[in-house]
Design a protein around this nucleic acid. Structure first.
Ligand SMILES: [Mn+2]
Ligand SMILES: [Mn+2]
Ligand SMILES: [Zn+2]
Ligand SMILES: [Zn+2]
Lengths: 148, 148
DNA sequence: AGGGTAATGAGAATCTTTTGCATTTGCCTA
DNA sequence: TAGGCAAATGCAAAAGATTCTCATTACCCT
């Protein structure tokens, strides 16, 4: 089933207009196999996950590929607080984030009311929206409980 | 009236629990005298504005002071796209931003509906909100007109 | 005015991301 | 299926933003 996985990702890359190279396939697999808890990964984290494998991929390539994936619409880049960007595979619908400033947990949500209001606000100001970013920072229930 | 200005900012600093040093006074003045078009400034921009004056202030100090101002609640730091943080003096109420990806223009808005929804979302997820950041990116009316 | 302490300046260091260039690889064609 | 070429990669150097170190200076209090 690994070969099938690779076959599938190969097709995804071709469809995105990208040559199906080994580094790109591996990075895409990492993103696709990530669990909910780590859907949002920095370039360095992707690099570390791939480092163990036989042929490791250079960090520069990780950055290059992730940027290409973003341009191709395969992934989204987020500039949360903390200096480094994080990436996530685009699957399902657009969503925004709420994250815990204590433990770093990231949760996703969709709110039609907010989406709608944003459209109105842009229109009121004469803007054509190209993108938007909404992140709520707070302390999650678990971190509130464990009073460390 | 310059002396009065300085006197006022001195009080502000004292109230914020910060020693009234010359660098801090000058940086605060820069922020207070900024026009709408440049309310949101990077550390480097503040540095450049102060560079001209007789006794210029080191960039490291600008960063230190802006961070202290942030901690004291005097300014807010924004991580818009583009690699570097921008700061703005806290005056009036909380607001969010809509900015033009072509010309860099930044406009502010307040939307009670969105603020309210954010509170609800945080509650639904069991979070205590500490902060939030909403930025709409788009193309302003002027940039849409001038088809460059 | 004098002294103790916190703040500053300058440059080095750090951290993240990008770039240059020689080498390798995927892909298309004969 | 082999050959060749443009695109992609790895590595190291560079760049850009921010922080840190440490010697020197400036506030503030008495
Ligand atoms: Mn997400
Ligand atoms: Mn603002
Ligand atoms: Zn938490
Ligand atoms: Zn514009």
């Amino acid at each position: 089933m690994v070969s099938k996985q690779i076959a599938m990702t190969t097709i995804e890359l071709k469809e995105a207009g990208l040559k199906a190279t080994l580094p790109r396939l591996k990075i895409l697999e990492i993103l696709e196999s990530s669990t909910d808890a780590q859907r949002h990964m920095s370039a360095e984290e992707v690099y570390d996950l791939l480092r163990g494998q036989d042929d490791k991929i250079g960090l520069a390539t990780i950055y290059r590929v992730l940027t290409q994936f973003e341009a191709a619409g395969l992934v989204t880049r987020h500039n949360f607080e903390g200096g480094h960007a994080v990436f996530e595979l685009n699957q399902g619908e657009h969503h925004d984030h709420i994250l815990c400033v204590k433990c770093g947990r990231v949760e996703e949500f969709v709110d039609e009311t907010i989406e709608q209001r944003q459209q109105n606000i842009a229109k009121e100001h004469g803007y054509t929206i190209t993108d938007h970013s909404l992140t709520i920072y707070g302390i999650c229930g678990e971190c509130q409980a464990g009073k460390v």
